[in-house]
Computed example of a mutant assay.
Amino acid sequence: MDEQAELNPPRRGPGRPRKVRPAEAAPVASPVVAPVDPLAPLVTDRRGAGKILGVSVSTIKRLEKSDPDFPRAFAVGAHRDKRLIEDIRGYALKKARVAAESGAA
């Protein structure tokens, strides 16, 4: 009976046939850097800074007090807890560069 099942595949019942999709080509990586999204946020708060750096809000608060290189907050309206996202990324790159230089020495 298994031989018959292999020779005669089961038929589908009445209804809509399956779509046959053509094989898609792999996307080609563009050498051009995508432009910056003009609607992307420029500032973030402690929670956003923690997400960018991969740490908790309490670690961000500790860095504010103890690390003089950590980007300072500024006021946007009534909220004083905003930082430029570019400054936070620059801080992370600076710390990574210092760690790489001290580890290589």
Rank of each mutant, 00 (worst) to 15 (best):
V20H: 01
P22A: 03
G15D: 04
V43P: 09
P17T: 00
P22D: 12
A49D: 07
A23I: 12
L39P: 05
R16C: 02
P17H: 02
R21Q: 06
K19I: 06
V36S: 09
P17E: 00
P17Q: 05
V36E: 15
V32R: 12
A26V: 09
P41H: 06
A29W: 13
P31C: 02
V28D: 05
R16K: 09
G15C: 06
L53E: 10
L53V: 07
V20T: 03
R16W: 02
A25D: 13
L39Y: 10
G54D: 12
P27K: 01
D45H: 10
L53G: 04
G50S: 11
P27Q: 00
A23M: 12
S30Q: 14
D37C: 10
V28A: 07
V36N: 10
P27D: 03
R18N: 07
R16I: 08
G48T: 14
P22C: 03
R46Y: 01
L53F: 08
A40M: 14
V32Y: 04
G50Q: 11
T44P: 13
D45E: 10
A34W: 04
V20Q: 03
A49G: 11
K19Y: 01
L42W: 11
G54Q: 14
G50D: 10
P17D: 01
G15Y: 02
V33R: 04
T44C: 15
A25M: 12
A25V: 15
G50L: 11
V43N: 10
A29K: 14
K19W: 00
I52Q: 11
A23W: 12
V20K: 05
R16P: 07
P17R: 13
R21L: 05
L39E: 13
R18L: 08
A29Q: 14
A26Q: 11
V33L: 05
P31L: 05
R16M: 07
A29M: 13
L42V: 12
R16S: 01
P17C: 01
P38F: 02
P38L: 07
V28W: 06
A40C: 15
A40D: 15
R46V: 03
G48V: 14
A25E: 13
V43S: 13
A34P: 12
P31E: 04
V43W: 08
A29L: 15
P27V: 00
S30F: 08
V36P: 13
G48F: 15
P22F: 04
R18P: 07
L42I: 11
P31N: 06
K19F: 02
A26P: 12
A23C: 10
V36R: 15
R47E: 05
A40F: 08
V32L: 09
P31I: 01
L53Y: 08
D37I: 06
L39F: 09
A49P: 10
T44M: 15
P41C: 04
R46T: 00
V28Y: 01
L53P: 10
K19G: 00
G15M: 07
P31G: 02
V28I: 13
A40T: 10
D37V: 06
D37N: 15
S30E: 14
A40N: 14
V28G: 01
A25S: 12
T44A: 08
P41S: 05
A25H: 08
A23E: 14
V32P: 05
